[in-house]
Nucleic acid binder design. Structure first.
Ligand SMILES: [Mn+2]
Ligand SMILES: [Mn+2]
Ligand SMILES: [Zn+2]
Ligand SMILES: [Zn+2]
Lengths: 149, 149
DNA sequence: TAAACTATTGAAACAAAATTTCAATAAGGT
DNA sequence: ACCTTATTGAAATTTTGTTTCAATAGTTTA
């Protein structure tokens, strides 16, 4: 049941402790479920998955836990669509950008090191400290292009 | 009163006509005001500016018009913050990315041609049609860094 | 281990953002 | 001028996200 050192569990527990907060079962269950989802997700989907597994975690707790997971770098806001935010776990994954089709809504991930380079150089030049970066391409995928007009 | 060809007004009118919609005073007033705002804005700010100038445009009309302006490429969603979307007009401006300070909330714009290059190459490789791109750096500006912990 | 302290929880109330409804209006075509 | 029908404002509604509060349960202290 114990996760090895350096795992998301340990990172989260250390973060919680360091902030003087309490490491609760609810917080751990939310974290575990998020790392079971290997896709982008929203609050409602996460909530339903937890319920379907028999957990009685309130949405309020999810809304309270997400900012903590983001603050400690395990989770990111990916994009805002259909009036609500979509998230993904990022710990253990390489940084990546997203292409979103405006027609079929498919989301593709891709990696390009030049993006990190751009961010790194900006940080260097202006003396800012980077917490995260986000690069999105919105458009029409190869199947959907041509249908817009 | 007439704007020269190629102006945002003309582009919008042509777009509206081509879609078989109607070019109304409300739509034009909203468009004009958006191009008077030389900054990022949200719906409430736009609404209040219109009211202060004596226009009686409803928020519903603003919410209805924004997607049209986005669809024809005059306006973009810039970022989602404080629970609502922020926009900017983009016609007539070079593409640019944003740095946002998580502490003081300042937003800085910068330009880097490598970003367009990355998008262009992705589009080429995967046969997608680009509608827009967005690059954001979130972090702490030089004044705010060090205060987070 | 018992007691004290206080952060966290779920449920419900609340607030805010965005969408929809609907009757009145007005754009644009004939 | 007349007709058709898209658009409007206002209000109702829906959805997202936050706050309140009493009960609970981590964590510390002795
Ligand atoms: Mn992703
Ligand atoms: Mn900008
Ligand atoms: Zn598609
Ligand atoms: Zn700052």
């Amino acid at each position: 049941m114990e996760k090895p050192p350096g795992s998301e569990i340990e990172i989260f527990r250390d973060f919680i402790k360091k902030k003087g907060l309490r490491y609760t079962p609810e917080r751990e269950v939310i974290l575990r479920e998020i790392f079971n989802i290997h896709d982008h997700f929203d609050v409602d989907e996460l909530y339903l998955r937890l319920r379907n597994k028999g957990h009685r975690i309130s949405k309020a707790s999810i809304y309270r836990t997400l900012p903590l997971l983001i603050e400690c770098g395990l989770v990111q806001e990916v994009y805002h669509e259909d009036g609500h935010m979509h998230y993904e776990h990022i710990y253990g994954h390489e940084p990546h950008a997203h292409f979103r089709c405006l027609s079929c809504r498919r989301v593709e991930e891709f990696r390009d090191e030049r993006l990190e380079e751009v961010a790194r150089e900006y940080a260097e030049r202006y003396g800012v400290e980077i917490k995260m970066t986000r690069f999105e391409i919105l458009g029409y995928c190869s199947s959907c292009r041509g249908e817009e007009g």
